[in-house]
């Protein structure tokens, strides 16, 4: 009878092995043979040597212990981070770095969201930019040079394509450069769903210069924008609002254009038809701030511009250099 196996260790061990292998084969081994486990999006590019070096640093520093890299197909998650993650985005990821704990925000759509200079400042000292952040400081990465020989070996191991020149260029780069290059390519294979399409560039601000709207706009501004545009809107990581220019060209934009750049971010530039900064970096706030809030921000920006135009020159200029350091 079955009771016998408990006095026959070899048979017993074999039976345990079979029990363990059953689920392993169906759930782990068999899926490997299926194409749906190895999809690849058309726009997905392999890592460059600099990006791979950055990925190695991301692994080394355990960023994965605080940051996920997978946006779930849930409404609020897509609103917060961007389009949900596709299986075909991870073809080159060895290992996957989806993570299991979101102490910090998801980074799957981080690429292009912010300018390089923001990342450099943030890695150096996150709390200087986001006061109550708990992200550790990584300023020391600026002093560490990359080692082209080992990066080359890593590229070879993975069979990734590269040019000798790309390897040679690594010698002049720091670990900080590499980490930023890696973060900036995250999510590159997926079209950003937000676009300036549907925005009415000729729309007029319903609140105009109502003092309540300006005050409300100022509060939203301090909470969301001041870190990049400065407490007085004199600029920092992002441009000044009061320098008589808009997106790199002289003259302020229309209300509708301001609404568009705030709502859709740097993607709106094409529709607006102004160049702005070459690597963009203005985030799309359309999903985070309701339209009324964005119009109040426009009221606030107009008020600042008006204020600046009537202010005697030379006052309040200290803000310039430090940007949002408060």
């Amino acid at each position: 009878m079955a009771g016998k196996i408990y006095s026959r260790p070899i048979l017993f061990t074999l039976m345990v092995t079979a029990a363990v292998l059953a689920g392993s084969i169906v759930m782990m081994a068999y899926p490997m043979l299926r194409p749906d486990m190895h999809p690849k999006l058309e726009k997905l590019r392999p890592f460059t040597p600099l990006q791979l070096a950055g990925r190695d640093i991301y692994q080394r520093e355990g960023c994965v212990n605080c940051h996920t890299q997978t946006v779930r197909p849930l409404r609020t998650e897509v609103m917060r981070y961007g389009d949900y993650s596709k299986a075909g985005e991870f073809f080159y990821d060895r290992p996957f770095l989806w993570g299991s704990k979101r102490t910090g925000p998801d980074l799957a759509r981080e690429g292009g969201k912010r300018p390089d200079s923001w990342h450099a400042a943030h890695f150096e000292n996150a709390q200087a930019i986001v006061p109550r952040s708990n992200m550790p400081p990584y300023g020391w990465l600026k002093k560490e040079k990359l080692d082209p020989v080992s990066v080359k070996a890593h590229m070879d191991g993975l069979g990734m394509p590269y040019t000798p020149q790309q390897i040679a260029e690594l010698a002049s780069k720091t670990e900080m450069d590499a980490l930023i290059a890696y973060v900036q390519q995250l999510g590159h294979a997926v079209e950003k769903p937000r676009s300036a399409g549907g925005l009415d560039l000729a729309a007029v601000n319903p609140f105009s210069s109502s003092p309540q709207a300006i005050a409300a706009g100022a509060a939203i501004y301090i909470a969301n924008c001041a870190v990049c545009h400065g407490n007085e809107a004199h600029g920092g990581i992002g441009p000044s609002f009061v320098d008589k220019k808009f997106l790199g060209e002289p003259g302020y934009g229309t209300d509708g254009e301001y609404f568009a750049i705030i709502s859709a971010g740097s993607d709106a530039k094409k529709a607006i038809g102004r160049p702005g900064l070459p690597d963009g970096g203005m985030e799309a706030f359309g999903t985070q701030i309701p339209p009324d809030g964005i119009w109040r921000l426009v009221s606030f920006i107009r008020a600042q511009q008006h204020h600046e135009a009537t202010e005697p020159a030379g006052v309040e200029k200290r803000e310039h250099e430090t940007g949002g350091k408060h």
Binding site: M28, M37, A87, F90, F91
Partner: peptide
Amino acid sequence: IPVGPLKSYHLFAGVNSANVEWW
């Protein structure tokens, strides 16, 4: 895939890597 004395990359990639890891 070992690529250095103390560095290697998972043999499995992407979704497959995730599935093996959580198994």
